[in-house]
Design a protein around this nucleic acid. Structure first.
Lengths: 342, 342
DNA sequence: TTGTAGGCGTTATCAT
DNA sequence: ATGATAACGCCTACAA
């Protein structure tokens, strides 16, 4: 492989424009105190030479790297993480930031060194945390000690500092359950989410509260453990549907599991929703693609992530701000997988 | 263990270990010619200080950034891109590289400046290209002019340089079609993929060739245009199934569309596979999650990507290598969505 | 085996 | 409004 054409630098641009490198820097960074005529000269020099600032030099010299880090648990499927990734990336791009990915594995033997290494090596300006890592106390403390500005996407508790975005999973779950009760259901089962995720408990609590408020008993045998995966939905459904007094609805704590429930129902020759109603959570693309399509809860992941990203970057300009937190509403989306009981 | 406002550098480590910064550098980079005792001293100093090398400084000084760039078309769903992303990331991590993402939009008005900017600003050591960008002539030329080592994942034609991984989509499609013919099908429809993707044509050709070899006519009205999305699968199925002499099989050019076909079949009260067999391509997670699960073609995306990533990085150590290309086999996976015709 | 000097391309400081 | 010069943290040369 030959030599790479050497890329032009601020010096080249400065020479071409007949100014100093500092002036070039000012123009590139949109700093004030540059005469319009001067700015134009520099801009056209930049154009002619095809100059692009070197991010490494910038990061070394200045204090900031113009990069954010996104820490997430490596998923089997990108339903949730994919949505976060996509909107974080587009917001970053628009604001001139890049996004560095750091998948981790939970429960991690020792996430702290990994996170430390990530932050220190890359010198990201800030970190974004998604569920379930967002609730990991070790990671949070490590970040706190490193003094990295952090955005928390869907944390269990709002933090004393940083950017928080969340929605009321408990309420959403309550609403879904109440909706099903209103349809006439009395035999309502529930598939819990992964125990590491704080939302799992919240969704369970909403379900239980709605039953209680309606005067229905809480039957422990109608609550099964799931792990947010399709397969765990299949397994959970199998155990719920083999009972003689089987439920008329299964509420799954996410769409992947709900798809698994539908799958298992069909395997057993049950019709959805005639014989069994099924509902999910998240309104991922999958929810529209099952047959019948899933009644689910739309959580505005994109909007939440975009807000978190923008707030985080805004906060980098003006530090020492207090914690901010923004609440987003969830919404029950009714599709074909649910209906009144027979 | 206390608060560390400023992160330690090679100088701190050197002082702590009583050596020069160059020796620290040697240890950090596993260079030879360091006495074991010296190495140990340095290592423990590194440990005590919690030193981590600064990637920006490294990138600026040396000529490599230890980062790869991944360029992909921003997807609606991460079925294909997600698989590539995941395995590229894990290979990178293992080899001490980071991965920078660059989603683009095709057809892009002007991808060249975007790609140029990406490469020049980040100074990535190499680029990975996925379909369909991998076949975009402008992008390829821009990369060529920038003299960036490139890996091509699933290119239409093998390139004169760089790393190529691909599999024989035409053959895979042929095999699938032949399998269906062997089952007794004679009325076989096909949903094409997005015209921007080179695999779309290959998959169509395999289908046509199999029909021809079996002495079956090519019916133009049984070939519909799709765009790799679930919705386009629904639309295509609708047009195929409203015919009076409808096909007994629909071969969709990817799993998302196949899921759409199943969806539409059920909407019309058709049973799969009794009334209609449906097949997909790619064996994404979705393929196992539809009901019935999809007969499809497994393309070893992870293995291909991992190989591409490793080869690319290996090539960075020893430049001036010739082009390499590795072929991976596809395999028909038979599941419940296909069966003999009635 | 180890150390010293110089430079990578940018931003920051302090002049002018 | 503009410019000279010093960091930034590391690596590549070349010495010793």
């Amino acid at each position: 492989m030959g030599l790479r054409k050497s890329q032009s630098t601020v010096f080249d641009v400065a020479a071409q424009a007949g100014v100093s490198i500092k002036t070039v820097s000012r123009v590139v960074n949109n700093e004030p105190n540059v005469r319009t005529a001067t700015r134009d000269k520099v801009l056209s020099a930049i154009n002619e030479l095809g100059y692009e600032p070197n991010a490494a030099a910038r990061g070394l010299s200045g204090k900031r790297s113009y990069a954010l880090g996104l820490i997430y648990e490596n998923p089997r499927e990108f339903s949730y993480v994919g949505a976060v990734l996509k909107s974080a990336l587009s917001a970053c791009e628009e604001l001139g930031y890049s996004l560095l990915l750091r998948p981790v594995t939970l429960p991690g033997q020792d996430l702290v060194p990994e996170v430390r290494k990530f932050v220190l090596q890359t010198r990201v300006d800030a970190i974004m945390l998604t569920a379930p890592v967002v609730d990991n106390p070790e990671v949070r403390q490590a970040l706190d000690e490193l003094q990295v500005p952090t955005a928390f996407i869907g944390p269990s508790l709002r933090t004393a500092s940083g950017v928080n975005v969340f929605c009321d999973d408990r309420q959403a779950s309550y609403d879904m359950t109440a909706h099903l009760i209103a349809l006439g259901h009395r035999r309502i089962a529930f598939v819990k989410g992964h125990p590491d995720h704080s939302v799992s408990l919240k969704r369970l609590m909403g379900y239980q509260q709605a039953l209680t408020d309606a005067g229905l008993p809480l039957r422990a045998d109608w609550v099964t453990q799931g792990y947010f995966s399709f397969e765990s939905g299949v397994t959970a459904a199998a155990s719920l549907l083999e009972k003689t007094d089987r439920p008329t609805v299964i509420i799954a704590s996410n769409d992947d599991m709900a798809a698994g429930v539908i799958f298992e129902a069909r395997e057993r020759g049950l019709n959805v929703p005639a014989d069994l109603s099924v509902t999910g959570f998240d309104d991922t693309p999958l929810a529209s693609h099952t047959w019948p399509p899933l009644t689910t809860i739309r959580q505005p992941i994109e909007a939440m992530t975009e807000h978190a990203t923008r707030s985080l970057i805004a906060r980098l300009q003006r530090p020492d701000q207090k914690a901010s937190s923004l609440h987003f509403d969830c919404k029950v989306i009714i599709r074909g997988s649910s209906g009144p009981p027979l």
